[in-house]
Design a protein around this nucleic acid. Structure first.
Lengths: 189, 189
DNA sequence: GGTATATAGTATCGATTCAATACTATATTG
DNA sequence: CAATATAGTATTGAATCGATACTATATACC
């Protein structure tokens, strides 16, 4: 019975978020999905800035994502470059124009205001609840978790601020470990 | 800073919900927005089963909603009737075919599973967090809250199970007060 | 009563979303 | 070096969505 209640609230939150996203994007000719793709690309690491990773993150087909990215590129919000090692792969970099837009629009005004109206402890409580819910949903869905390296089981801490990815066999910088990764797998089994 | 974190989690939950909704709807030719409209109509009261109310609930234009409803009617998921008092108004009733579909699809499989994996107390905690977040967002957005009569300031309890709506000046049945209403206004100022 | 205005809803247009299918190009496997 | 897998693009058609223009009924006001 509680599943319905949780479902209802999430559906409502999702609706409100989507409609606000649509609204704030209008002056810039941006659709919700375009903002989400751009937003993702601004917070993912160098292993995860490809069309395929966006496809997985948004749970869409690669064809659909290809169109969205084409529009974003046309509007000069991102720059495509071909991977030097594997020429099938395209890397997507958010342009400075894109970053400025994101900084202006995200988080949306409502969430900025909400944060001011709620106490620190309430916000922490809400964040924890959302995290818990998300984690179970991602497990259940057998989906990639798209977490940051900090919480990934491949991340091997060498010294206090020296990290290494056990999957790609590459060192990770301080910036790296705060970005989300498509290969992320939780430490907890 | 916490606003970003809350925003991120809600965005992710919204994405996952939307993609699951899309997936479960495919075998029935139902799009996410169609399911949401139908779902709303199945849980709203008799003051709130009109195209305009759906428009407010989904935060779309009446034209867009008109199209969605036309498709739902064509597929025999809902029945339109004209209000006898005000002939501009159309009432929308979910058909038995529509109700069967909703019962099968909502809450979606993932949410049903999630509910099984989390303890009662955790679920209660999550529900409370979601409620709190929703309430602030709706206030902030100056949006209608779409709550049930039970929590509405227009609802006047006469006896233990006898209710009366101060806005419409009509008695409310036991079923009425468990349905959501477009005129809902929270008791709390 | 009758005109002005407000409200509920439909119709149509064009841009975007999205899945499905078919396609090209590069990598990998044997 | 042939078969297969992977990354991405192109195209088509149905649905979403806002914008605009429209019809019909109800209400306000003089």
């Amino acid at each position: 019975m509680k599943s319905k209640e949780i479902y209802d609230h999430v559906e409502r939150l999702a609706n409100l978020l989507r409609s606000e996203s649509r609204q704030v994007g209008i002056p810039y000719g941006m659709q919700p999905i375009q903002l989400e793709a751009l937003r993702y690309l601004s917070i993912c690491n160098r292993y995860s800035d490809t069309p395929m990773a966006v496809t997985e993150y948004l749970n869409q087909t690669k064809g659909t994502v290809s169109q969205t990215l084409k529009l974003l590129e046309k509007k000069n919000f991102l720059i495509k470059t071909t991977d030097s090692n594997d020429k099938r792969i395209t890397h997507l970099k958010v342009s400075s124009k894109g970053n400025k837009l994101l900084q202006k629009l995200i988080p949306t005004p409502v969430y900025t205001q909400v944060s001011k109206k709620l106490s620190e402890s309430t916000q922490t409580q809400i964040i924890n609840s959302l995290k818990e819910l998300l984690q179970v949903i991602q497990q259940e869905n057998e989906m990639k978790s798209f977490g940051v390296c900090n919480t990934c089981r491949y991340n091997q801490k060498i010294k206090s601020d020296s990290h290494f990815c056990g999957l790609t066999q590459e060192p990770l910088s301080k910036v790296d470990i705060s970005l989300i990764c498509r290969e992320h797998e939780s430490v907890v089994e």
